[in-house]
Structure formats: C-alpha cells, structure tokens
C-alpha cells in the first residue's frame, strides 16, 4: 500500500485547466505523473456516465477541472459540471465507494501553479484513501 500509485482521470476544460496544464509544463512546474488528462471542450460536456466509466475502467480518483465560476466560455458549463459531480458522488455513496474519489475544481488558464497544486492535492488524497474498491477486488 505504501507503494500505491493511484491512477487519476482529469476531465480538463479546453479553455482553462487544459491551458493551465500547458502553462504548468512551460513553467517547468512538477506535478505527480498519476494524472491522465482528458481534454473536453467544456466541463459542461462531462456527463455522469463519463465519470462513472472512468471509475469503472480503473481510475482510483477522478476530478473535473473547469473554469473559475462566472468565466465559463459557454456561460454555465462549469456550474453544470459541479452539480453532476455532486450527483456522481451521491451515486458512489449508494454503492459504498468513497465519494471523495470524485472532485470538482475551478481554475483559470493563467493558473499553471494551481493546476500542479490540485494534481498534488488530489494524488495525496487518493493515496491516503488507497486503491479504488473496484481495483482492490481484482488484484
């Protein structure tokens, strides 16, 4: 368990957090290699089933990284994503999976630092929780 390296799926908005990830790279900011970025045109495109599929396919954690509130390119996409994330968390609780494995973050395209910080925060949190219950039984 000490060597546990979680796999974390990130649904990243083209207009903000994806650009922030790019900036983090340009600034040579280190962040854990545990995250796998899935670029989406807007976090409003991320559906409940997308997040569930990520978990079923073996992710130990998932987070959706959208624009700062009030700055969504499509006006309300990040607000919708936030509600869907909460819905997925409730679904996971119903089948006894820690809801904390799914999170929503907001950041701007200029926040390369924040992108790295969030990646570290989420990786640490998931490491503490251990492997997803779905991955435990298969191993």
């Amino acid at each position: 368990m000490d060597n546990f390296e979680p796999l974390i799926a990130v649904f990243s908005c083209h207009y903000c957090s994806y650009a922030a990830a790019d900036l983090a790279g340009s600034l040579r900011i280190q962040y854990p290699p545990n995250i796998r970025i899935i670029k989406v045109p807007c976090t409003g495109r991320v559906s409940v089933n997308h997040i569930l599929m990520a978990i079923e396919s073996g992710s130990d954690g998932v987070y959706v990284a959208g624009c700062l509130k009030g700055t969504c390119h499509f006006i309300r996409g990040n607000y919708k994503a936030e509600k869907r994330v909460q819905y997925v968390r409730d679904l996971l609780s119903e089948i006894n999976i820690e809801p904390e494995r799914v999170q929503m973050y907001f950041m701007s395209a200029a926040e390369g630092n924040k992108f790295a910080e969030v990646a570290r925060e989420m990786t640490e949190a998931v490491k503490k929780m251990g492997p997803s219950p779905l991955n435990k039984s298969s191993s």
Binding site: V48, N49, I55
Partner: peptide, 19 residues
Amino acid sequence: PREVKTLSTLIRMDRKQKG
C-alpha cells in the same frame, strides 16, 4: 438509455466490489 447505462455501470461496480 442514458440512465440505463448509469444503472448498469453501478450494478457492475457493486458486483465487482463484492467479487
């Protein structure tokens, strides 16, 4: 169809946990 997918996924995830 969307909710069918959600429920099926939840059922599979529950069973996987229980082995």
